[in-house]
């Protein structure tokens, strides 16, 4: 899952992005309003964590412009402003959630999971596909209650495909949402990771398959 975090406090930016990365999210950061808006407009994120009091342009203004442009990415406002009127203004502008500083990092992760579930139309953290059960909160995969051990990157790829099961996901989408822009990828990194996931699934007796769609990408087929 790819997250944009716009925050002017360098310490908070560093800590939160580190924590999010450890939780399996791919994180892009911006330290001011205009840069945050540019990133949000150019790239497709699964969620945006937005500070309100930002230099250059405040979070409310960024949110307003995003919604005006038709961008419906889930937005979580993260701010020191705790007044009711601030919360109401943020939510009225189209924010999906509002978290006041200081916050427990676990709560931030939980709220992000809620946003992810809402984005993909789920109501719980567990997803059942055939004889598979995916626990997104714990980042664990089970085949008939037997755990399948995936590497973090492999789980990221599988999670992304599982969220969109039945739909073709392009190689570019996978790269953008699973890998950091900064890191260069070898041409077959995705293929290699997909291959490993297929092996794990087959080995565990899973009844779902990841199919390659020539020149388009991959699709996770649910059992018929």
């Amino acid at each position: 899952m790819q997250i944009l975090y716009v925050e002017d406090s360098p310490i908070l930016r560093q800590s939160v992005s580190t924590g999010l990365k450890r939780a399996g999210y791919k994180v892009e950061c911006a330290d001011n309003g205009p840069d945050g808006l540019d990133l949000a407009m150019v790239h497709e994120f699964d969620a945006i964590i937005l500070d309100v009091m930002l230099p250059g342009m405040n979070g409310f203004e960024i949110l307003r412009r995003l919604r005006e442009e038709g961008n419906e990415t889930e937005v979580l406002l993260l701010t020191a402003r705790s007044g009711i009127e601030d919360r109401v203004e943020g939510l009225d502008l189209g924010a999906d959630d509002y978290l006041v500083k200081p916050f427990a990092f676990e709560e931030l992760l939980a709220r992000l999971r809620v946003l992810m579930r809402r984005r993909f139309g789920r109501t719980v953290d567990d997803l059942h596909l055939g004889n598979l059960r995916i626990d997104f909160a714990a980042r664990r995969l089970f085949v008939v209650e037997k755990e399948v051990s995936l590497r973090p990157r492999e789980f990221d790829i599988f999670e992304y495909l599982a969220q969109r099961s039945g739909k073709v996901v392009s190689r570019t989408q996978l790269i953008e949402h699973v890998y950091d822009h900064a890191k260069s990828l070898s041409s077959n990194a995705i293929d290699s990771a997909i291959c490993n996931v297929r092996k794990h699934l087959t080995g565990a007796g899973a009844n779902v398959t990841i199919t390659t769609v020539p020149k388009r990408g991959y699709v996770l087929d649910p059992p018929r």
């Binding site: 908070l12 800590s15 020191a80 705790s82 006041v100 500083k101 427990a104 990092f105």
Partner: peptide, 23 residues
């Protein structure tokens, strides 16, 4: 509001820093 912001932000920094490090 200002004092809340001045105090909330460093407290949030400290808490998140320690929580993420301790995790």
């Amino acid at each position: 509001i200002d004092i809340a912001h001045e105090m909330r932000t460093p407290v949030a920094e400290l808490r998140t820093l320690l929580e993420v490090a301790g995790d």
